[in-house]
Deep mutational scan, measured.
Amino acid sequence: TTLHFDLDGKKLQYTGVSEEIARLVEELKRRGVDLKEIVRILEELLK
């Protein structure tokens, strides 16, 4: 799965993300978590 974000005018793309992580990101968005925080979490998970 590939995730795309537009953060402060920067286009971020994460490829090869598992379905689980993609679902987690969608859930965080639904809960109103700040996009910067979501990206920070995502980068930690993908290390």
Rank of each mutant, 00 (worst) to 15 (best):
K47M: 15
V17P: 01
K36P: 09
L28S: 03
A22F: 11
Q13N: 10
D6H: 07
L42Q: 00
T2L: 05
E20Y: 06
E26Q: 10
R30P: 00
R31V: 14
E20V: 06
E27I: 06
E26V: 08
I21T: 14
T15I: 10
L45S: 12
K29V: 15
L24H: 15
D8M: 03
K11A: 11
G16A: 08
E19I: 13
E43F: 02
Y14T: 00
E43M: 04
V39G: 01
L3V: 08
K36M: 12
G32I: 03
E20W: 05
D8A: 04
K11I: 11
V17Q: 02
I38Q: 06
D8H: 04
I38T: 04
L46W: 04
V33I: 14
L7W: 06
L42T: 05
I21H: 15
V33C: 04
R31S: 13
F5W: 02
F5G: 01
I21F: 07
F5I: 08
R23L: 15
A22L: 09
T1H: 15
K36T: 14
R40L: 08
T1R: 07
D34G: 08
L28G: 02
G9M: 02
D8Q: 04
T1I: 15
V17Y: 01
L7A: 04
H4C: 03
A22D: 04
E19Y: 10
R31E: 15
L45V: 12
D6A: 02
R31D: 15
E43W: 02
Y14Q: 00
V33Y: 09
L24W: 08
I41T: 12
L28H: 08
T1L: 15
T15K: 08
H4R: 05
K11V: 13
E20F: 04
D8S: 03
D8F: 03
V25H: 02
K10H: 13
L7T: 03
I41L: 10
I38C: 03
L35W: 03
I38W: 00
V33A: 07
L46G: 03
G32N: 12
R31G: 15
E27W: 05
Q13T: 14
D34M: 09
G32H: 11
E20H: 10
V39Y: 02
L12H: 08
D8W: 02
V17M: 04
L45F: 06
F5C: 01
K36N: 13
L28F: 10
S18H: 06
A22H: 09
V25F: 04
V33T: 15
E37S: 09
L42D: 00
V17T: 02
F5M: 04
T2H: 07
K11W: 12
F5P: 00
K10F: 10
E37H: 07
D34N: 09
L42G: 00
K29D: 12
K10T: 15
K10I: 15
G32V: 04
